[in-house]
Design a protein around this nucleic acid. Sequence first.
DNA 1: TTTAGCACTCGTGACCCTTGAGTGCTAAAC
DNA 2: GTTTAGCACTCAAGGGTCACGAGTGCTAAA
Lengths: 355, 355
Amino acid sequence: MAPDMTERRQLILKLVIQEYIESPKPVAVASETLLKKYKLQFSSATIRNELAALEELGLLTHLHTSAGRIPTDAGYRYFVENLMDRQALTAQEQRTIQHQFYQVRGELDQWIHLAAAVLAHTPPTHNTAVVTPPRAYHVRVKHIELIAIYETVVLLVLVLHDGTIKQQSLTTDVPQQQDELRRIAQRFNERLHGVTVDKVQQFVADPGEPPLSPFETTVLEVIMRAMQQIEGQIDDKVHHDGLLEMLRRDEFAEVERVRQVLQILEEGKGIGPLIPQALNSDGVQVVIGGEHGQDTMREYSVILSRYGRSGEVAGVVGLFGPTRMPYPRSISSVRYISTVMSELLAELYGDRPAS
Amino acid sequence: MAPDMTERRQLILKLVIQEYIESPKPVAVASETLLKKYKLQFSSATIRNELAALEELGLLTHLHTSAGRIPTDAGYRYFVENLMDRQALTAQEQRTIQHQFYQVRGELDQWIHLAAAVLAHTPPTHNTAVVTPPRAYHVRVKHIELIAIYETVVLLVLVLHDGTIKQQSLTTDVPQQQDELRRIAQRFNERLHGVTVDKVQQFVADPGEPPLSPFETTVLEVIMRAMQQIEGQIDDKVHHDGLLEMLRRDEFAEVERVRQVLQILEEGKGIGPLIPQALNSDGVQVVIGGEHGQDTMREYSVILSRYGRSGEVAGVVGLFGPTRMPYPRSISSVRYISTVMSELLAELYGDRPAS
DNA sequence: TTTAGCACTCGTGACCCTTGAGTGCTAAAC
DNA sequence: GTTTAGCACTCAAGGGTCACGAGTGCTAAA
């Protein structure tokens, strides 16, 4: 703790931030307000002196002379690191969430929707939930399927070990029979089960006997392209929920802010770059304002947590909103939901490394 | 043609609407402006009389006495039906679009992204492109695959004949071997190929020999549930592109309008109900303002066209924006892109009914 | 039936004023 | 040295007034 941060200053900073983030509207907080609301044992003049000191320390600021104080990014950071009280979810809330996940446990593609919906609708709402699907960094082949659609059209279904599915139609000059396709798929499945993209490459270079037909080569090329594409787009699309609710906040009275948010969410700008970091960290990550040098994010914060296991099948889940965010509660929600999702994921993929 | 609609009135109405929808800002058009811009052979006073008459007929309106005229929904409708000049895409634009689709022809899941991107970025931009994935109303089983993830976890992959893929993990009490799973899948594929959900139901009721194991019954139940769910959500999620570009329009200076649009796009309100109709019609559908009694849509128009074949595998593609929309050009774009997509779809599924 | 002329309407933007919340400072009290 | 009362000062927000000008609607003449 910096020596300048006396206990009283900590108390006042904490109260200012709590007051500010909990109020429905973003009104700067004044010395008299604090005095009355929290029945402090010193006068408003003293508070004003302390507020001035906290401003000197860079933790608070104000928009103009005759306005109350609002936290700076550094102020929020200090609050999150040192001052805030944890606000765990109630047992009832935990049960409800567990129950909802239990109902869709098998449907991996529903997870991200559910997670986002739950986070967006667990009070306090008014922030946007963001989730990426569970994915592996280095994808491996789980299963290959070739289905004759009709004579010269074949549907390739590629299942990767993280559960990602990629489908692709192929047209061929030579008509393919379903029997023949099954034979090809079986050979591929035997040789390629569990391998990464470079092992597929090796197989193409040295297939052994019998050599690959042109059609088989095509199929393998498509498979490799698909795998590469999927590896490259890890943080491509971030699913979100609760946006409209968030836009009701007074912060979004001017269109420009709304456009900013849409740019961040729709084009992945701002949040995307934070995802790799979250995937490789344990615990909840909090990025406040422009802390990571992203100008688009200067007025927004993101709370992210990985679910699943680092380096294996994993995704991130979190909340996004204006820096004026109810951090204690939001952090608890994100932490809890990531735990639940991790447990369910472990159940699905087993407790050992996914094969 | 209503007898009141003299040629001159038609001309003036057409010019008013063209002037209004082509201008970058929504400024009501005045009699003097028309006179100067189009060198009309009669005076501004005459134009004013005609404008008053067109207002009497319900085709134009104005916001206050000292403002120029703007079209009503009925005015736009009359324009679209009777007055507008077709504005076909240039050969160059057509080539570019064809080329882009050719590059992703096999990847069905890329289609909707591409279609939306192309529509959103073909001038005039400033409207939002909307696309639904190619889907069949009555889904039939194409292929069933069971993959052992580990001993008691099985991944079911269900491929439907419209190319939709549904994955679901199942946990079982009895460990399942991959060989056994392959046998089960093969039996199912032989018996269920091409069948609709009620035929699956029949099979469960009367499986013949050998009877179904509890695990097999579970799998079939999951399959049926998945099929029902997919049939029910035909117009569930509408993919869109170009939203941010549209929000730069002056129409969206107030947040309330932006919220309306997000509600329409994110929650499917407004556009969803129009989709079944578009799927069952030929040609381009234009819904202007609140024509279909949807209050949320009162200030917006949608241009939709089916691609694919009615009743078989098909989707819709279109444009969405404020009623002040460049109809001639937008309609041409939508028409062209739906044609291209229909052709590609026919190529993928063959020219006969999909089997 | 068309047109010139002109009064009238009404939204827009500039300007000014008042109000009140809240600070910052000074000087006295503890 | 620290705390506090008192008060001058600042500044955003809201409201009222006014001038401006674009554009219509009407009247009367062509």
